Amino acid sequence: MDKSDWAMQEMKGWIGGVTVVWDGGTRVFEVYDPVRLAQTVALEIEQIGRFMARDLLVVSSVTRENIETVISAIADGGFSA
């Protein structure tokens, strides 16, 4: 993605399908900022009575730098919660 794509994702506060590949496997994350996550949770609870997300990652702002920093820290911990 280029700078304008990342700027759009940051404004949206959400990006899905962030695939991380390492020698131990592959993992796909949904990344949210806290505001967008709260909005999404509230809307889904209102509409369908629940919210579910597998491999949810919440960062202060949905930027490439924030995502890479957090993924790197998670990788250092062996991808455990």
Rank of each mutant, 00 (worst) to 15 (best):
S4G: 07
S4N: 12
S4T: 15
S4Y: 09
A7F: 08
M8D: 13
Q9R: 11
E10R: 09
E10D: 08
K12P: 03
K12L: 10
I15V: 15
G16F: 07
G17M: 05
V18Y: 00
T19N: 04
T19C: 07
T19M: 07
V20D: 00
V20M: 04
V20G: 02
D23S: 15
D23F: 10
D23G: 14
G24Y: 08
T26Q: 04
T26N: 03
R27Y: 06
V28D: 09
E30P: 07
Y32C: 00
Y32Q: 02
Y32G: 01
P34R: 05
P34V: 09
P34T: 09
V35T: 13
L37D: 02
L37H: 02
T40E: 12
T40K: 08
E44P: 05
E46Y: 02
E46C: 07
Q47F: 05
I48S: 15
I48R: 14
I48E: 14
R50Q: 13
F51I: 01
F51T: 00
M52Q: 15
M52N: 15
M52W: 14
D55R: 03
D55F: 05
L57H: 09
L57F: 01
V58H: 04
V58N: 04
V58Y: 01
V59I: 13
V59T: 08
S60R: 11
V62R: 00
V62G: 05
V62T: 03
V62Y: 00
